[in-house]
Amino acid sequence: MHLRTCQECGVTRCGDDSKNKHATAHYHATEHPVISSAEENERWLWCYADEAFITY
């Protein structure tokens, strides 16, 4: 399971590799569109609204 952090409110949830896909569910419940990886050595953002992946 990989963790994802909401860039709007800071909540951290499990990603889509988990059974319940909590990060995606958080987006649908709140419309907070951007998450980042909370995993060590992963530097990226995902925008659900634009379906865009950004590495930095």
Score class of each variant (00 low, 15 high):
R4F: 04
W44Q: 04
K19P: 09
S18K: 04
Q7T: 14
Q7N: 15
H2W: 10
A25L: 13
E40C: 02
H26T: 03
C6S: 04
G15E: 05
C6T: 03
A29G: 01
T5W: 05
H32V: 03
Q7K: 13
S18W: 02
S18N: 09
Y27G: 00
N41I: 04
E39T: 10
H26S: 04
T30M: 08
A23Y: 04
N41D: 15
N20D: 15
E42G: 08
L3N: 06
G15I: 06
R4P: 01
H22Y: 00
C6K: 05
A23V: 07
S18V: 00
V11A: 11
R13T: 10
R13S: 14
E42F: 03
H28N: 11
E8N: 15
R43H: 15
T5R: 14
S36L: 12
C9N: 12
L45C: 10
G10Q: 11
H28V: 02
H22W: 01
K21W: 07
I35E: 05
C14I: 01
M1S: 15
L45V: 09
V34S: 00
L3F: 11
S37N: 03
E39I: 09
D16T: 07
H2I: 04
L45N: 07
G10T: 11
R43D: 11
S37L: 00
E31W: 06
D17G: 05
W44R: 07
V11C: 05
K19N: 11
L3Q: 10
E31C: 06
T12V: 10
Y27T: 00
T5G: 11
R13I: 06
M1Y: 12
A23R: 03
D17Q: 10
T24M: 06
D17T: 10
W44A: 06
S36G: 14
V34C: 02
R43N: 14
L3T: 08
E8C: 09
N20K: 14
H26D: 03
M1G: 14
T24A: 11
G10R: 11
S37P: 03
H32R: 06
V11Q: 09
S37M: 02
C9G: 12
C9T: 12
N41W: 04
T5S: 13
V11H: 05
D16K: 09
C6Q: 06
E39Y: 06
A38F: 01
S18A: 14
T5C: 14
S36F: 08
H22M: 04
L45M: 13
D17Y: 01
D17A: 04
T12C: 04
K21Q: 15
C6F: 05
A23L: 10
N20F: 13
E8W: 05
Y27W: 13
H2N: 12
P33M: 05
Q7Y: 01
C14G: 12
H32D: 02
R43S: 14
T30G: 08
C14Y: 08
E8T: 14
K19V: 15
C14K: 06
K19L: 15
C6D: 09
H28P: 02
A29F: 01
A25Y: 00
L3Y: 13
I35Y: 00
E31T: 09
T12H: 00
H22D: 12
E31I: 06
T30Y: 07
G10Y: 03
R4S: 02
Q7S: 05
H26K: 03
A29N: 10
E40D: 11
E39H: 07
G10I: 03
